[in-house]
């Protein structure tokens, strides 16, 4: 492709193919000539013994790392989709409570689709493999300043598709609420039941709220999180005080 005069090459996904790009430079000030050859990776390609040895070495190392015990659990942890996408579970509570503590937030909402293991983890040792099966993606977690009214809208979105096994169903920390699935989507959350940080939600109050980047970008219907203000902290050595930021983009640094 050459949109707007810029050559763009996409070689496919998952290492199933690659591209050989050859550039022939011409006289100064002229565009180089480019040629692209796409190569499909198939079993017809001979194995490279050096690469094979390297990948086997890394695979063995990875297998050992995955076996390592990272924690012990005194209770079963429920990560089944049929549970976690329709109700609060203790695995959801664990993950959200960890986020709240780590981010010093008032409250947390996480979409259940984040938690991917789809099993009940038995009581006993939890391995790195268990952790990776629950949270396979390295999601960045952000701290925002969010109005109570926007939080309420987010909760409505979270329960709007119930009883479908929807990844948007929320897991929460620092929040309590009741919802009535017999009411229409958008009217299911009982406003008088919503507690944030142990007090009734105040619709105009700004809460320190943590969630993952996916939801900050409005995915899974969480557009309420796109109306937000960052809570920002200065880098160490510049006071370490938290500041309330204006609307900003994730890439802003200071």
């Amino acid at each position: 492709m050459e949109p707007h005069g810029t050559l763009v090459v996409k070689s496919g996904t998952d290492f199933r193919g690659f591209s050989v790009i050859k550039l022939r430079l011409g006289a100064a000030g002229t565009r180089p000539h480019a040629s692209v050859e796409q190569v499909q990776v198939t079993s017809a390609a001979p194995e490279d013994p050096d690469i094979k040895a390297m990948t086997e070495s890394y695979t063995a190392q990875m297998a050992e790392e995955m076996k390592k015990v990272v924690a012990h659990s005194s209770v079963e942890l429920d990560g089944r989709f049929e549970s976690i996408r329709r109700s609060e579970t203790n695995l959801g509570n664990l993950v959200c409570d960890c986020i709240r503590a780590a981010m010093s937030a008032d409250c947390v909402v996480l979409n259940s689709g984040t938690l991917r293991s789809d099993v009940v983890h038995p009581a006993g040792p939890l391995s790195m493999h268990d952790l990776v099966s629950v949270l396979p993606m390295m999601d960045p977690v952000y701290l925002l300043s969010l109005r109570g009214a926007d939080l309420l809208a987010a909760l409505e979105n979270g329960v709007s598709m119930y009883p479908a096994l929807e990844g948007r169903f929320p897991q929460v920390s620092g929040i309590e609420f009741a919802f009535d699935p017999e009411k229409p989507p958008g009217e299911r959350v009982m406003v008088e039941s919503v507690m944030v940080a142990d007090a009734p939600v105040a619709l105009e109050r700004e809460y320190k709220f943590a969630t993952k980047e996916f939801l900050v970008n409005g995915k899974d219907g969480y557009v309420a999180f796109m109306v937000r203000r960052w809570v920002r902290r200065k880098r160490e050595g510049s006071g370490g005080k938290r500041e309330e930021g204006g609307r900003a983009r994730p890439s802003i640094r200071f």
Binding site: V70, A71, H72, S73, S74, V75, L77, S87, E88, T89, N90, L91, N93, L94, V95, D97, C98, I99, A101, A102, T114, L126, L131, V132, V134, L135, M137, M138, D139, P140, V141, Y162, P170, V172, S173, I175, E176, F177, A178, F179, P181, S193, K212
Partner: peptide, 29 residues
């Protein structure tokens, strides 16, 4: 996110404690 959990697990191991978390009616249907 996974690193947040890993850090918490390390804290627990240093304290020789186990994960113990319950469903506590924070979402009522």
């Amino acid at each position: 996110l996974p690193v947040i959990l890993q850090n918490y697990f390390e804290e627990l191991q240093r304290a020789d404690a186990s994960v113990s978390v319950a469903v506590d009616s924070r979402i009522r249907n």
